[in-house]
Amino acid sequence: MIRKQPTARVRYAAGLTAGLVLLALAVAGGLAVGAQSVPPAEVFAALLDPDAPHASIVREVRVPRTLLAVTAGAALGLAGAVMQGLTRNPLAEPGLLGVNTGAACAVVAATVLLGTRSLHAVVWWALLGAAVAVVVVYLLGGRGAGRGTPEGLVLAGVAVTAVLGAVVSGLGVLDADAYGTLRMWSVGTLAGRELPVLWEVLPFLLVGAVLALAVAPALNAFALGDEAGRALGVAPGRVRLLGTLATVLLSGAATAAIGPVGFIGLVAPHVARLLAGPDHRRLMPYAVLIGAGLLLVADIVGRVVARPAEIQVGIVTAFVGAPVLIWLIGRARRNRRSASRKAVATA
């Protein structure tokens, strides 16, 4: 009797199920691991009983931190998938293109120059900074010899990130009282973040996620080019507007919650593409799970390797993401050289 091979839909569902299981294990690790390890049985007891041993650590510190890691990581992974689809650029992601740093710079400027302390106001300033950074990077990346290449946008993003990072450092020095608070805006961290932060940014993240998933089918046609997209009934201007808005909401709100964390939006979509293929409707759920898991695992690693102190999560993600970026740039160059040789051979 011939055994039937599993269909693509079954494999896809099985992959998502496995991803959810792995994410659940990472969540358990996030609740149990830290400067003081808590046995799994005591973690479970602390979640049920506020008077249980270690209840204050688990309920007041690790639950908010874990929920923020999962939510922000999912948002950054989804934002990266949208940006790569919009720009047709495998190197696009909120951190590399200056979006996260733009959000951080706007928050720091509002805090130091205007005395802004309200969490609600911080979120709006982060969204404004992210939007301005997107526009500036796209304008710079579309000019000069690097126009239209992945490296062109990356170089524009690096330039904008460097300038805005210098502004953040300078403004932090101007206000000595706020400097300790503003350190998180130089590199992202989950330490000390509380549940009210999550509730404040969650509406923006949900709206951004809905917009991202809504443009997923259009991004498939958009990948073929503007003209091919129009022939398939897609309006490129509308797709760019909605996709950019989704990216600003997702990355800006995530940055407002935990500061600028890079490379999650770069790595998560690439891994998702390997598992689910190029279809954005299938790729995006994977990017959400992978982004959430990557940021949470990076946070756990940062707590463990320097115990009892900890390494900020943005530093850990940079160690993981930088080699991936180098490999992707090298692969893009090899692909272009191969395409050029084939064009010459067929001429």
Rank of each mutant, 00 (worst) to 15 (best):
D175M: 11
A191F: 07
L224R: 11
A156G: 13
A216Q: 03
V163L: 15
V288Y: 00
T189S: 15
T116A: 14
G293H: 09
L68A: 00
A133V: 06
V305Y: 06
G252T: 07
P64E: 02
I326A: 15
A72H: 05
T189R: 13
A309W: 00
A231L: 06
M284E: 06
A276H: 10
V210H: 11
A246Q: 05
G157H: 06
S118M: 09
Y138D: 08
A178H: 09
T149A: 11
L153F: 13
Q84I: 02
A191Q: 14
P39T: 00
L275Q: 07
A318K: 01
A218P: 00
R238L: 15
P269W: 01
L283S: 04
R331T: 00
W125H: 15
L171W: 07
T247C: 14
G262L: 07
P260Q: 10
G321W: 10
W185K: 02
I264K: 08
A292G: 13
A75L: 04
T189N: 14
L78C: 03
L97S: 09
L249E: 06
V168G: 09
L211E: 06
E194A: 11
A55R: 06
R281E: 12
G102H: 06
R336V: 03
L242R: 05
G259Q: 02
R333K: 08
L96C: 08
R273P: 01
